[in-house]
Amino acid sequence: MAVQTQPQVTTSTPRTAAKPAAGQPWKERWGGLFFVAPFLLLFAVFMIWPIISGLWNSFFNTSLAGVKQEFLGLQNWREMFGDPAVWSSLKNTLVFTAMSTPPLVIIALVMALLANRKGLLGWLLRFSYFAPFVLPATVVTLIWVWIYQPGFGLVNGLLTAGGFAEIDWLNTENRAMLAVVITTVWWTVGFNFLLYLAALQGIPAQVYEAAAIDGANGRQQLFRITLPLLSRTTGLIVVLQLVASLKIFDQIYLMTNGGPNFATRPIIQYIYQNGFTNYRIGYASAISYMFFAVIVVVAVLQFRLFSGRKEAGQ
């Protein structure tokens, strides 16, 4: 734990008490703005402005080619609520999130417990568990498409060698999502693993020494000390993971292109297709906003739940 000095004690000379010399007040009052200005400028141009213009576009019949805009009012929004492709791709996104989040949290925890050791073995374990995370999505999907390849891919090679029937993972409707989830867990579990590992290393050794003196065995230490102390971290990881999983696009686009028969197409890909393939900027913007609302609701609910539990735990 970082020892935090109380600001009230250390600020011996509060700024308000300083006598404003001639010409100073302006600088005193506004000078701080210069520090935040570069970030604010970029924030305004590349985040606030697209948010506003996206909302604006959603009321127009805008195309990417910049053809004259026609005001539609809420027509894009009404169309969206009646568009089955919106709901099926949103469902795919939610299914992916529900399938990927539990293993991404649990396996990360197991890895952290296993790799929290010193020496060369610890280094090697940490490297192996985290290594896939540093790879680009394209590299990951090239490797896994090859692994899932029918005929001579690794998985099917092992299946046929073991006498099982082979599965065309990425082209079978009820297998493709599972295949993507497996790839995703392999690729991204390392980040959650690091968060758990950092939390584990933050638990003081004295806690375990005291427990050992009291006669607690390894299992008791794990269930009575380690896991309860990690509950805050688990809350944080679940929030981050849910929001990250909802934003799924790269792996699915690259592995199945949303197929077979749109069975894996996530909502971001539907937005992408409307905007960049069908050139329907206004419609794509309306869907973006709806999806944005879903993410905010999930995140806020999670934060509520998480902070509520934290208070209860104290």
């Binding site: 924030f43 985040m47 944005f292």
Partner: peptide, 21 residues
């Protein structure tokens, strides 16, 4: 800015691309 943490860059691709054009 805190509220900005919640904004997924993925939902801004369409207006952002228009802006870049």
């Amino acid at each position: 800015i805190i509220a900005g943490i919640l904004v997924p860059p993925q939902v801004l691709i369409v207006p952002l691309f228009q802006e870049m054009t």
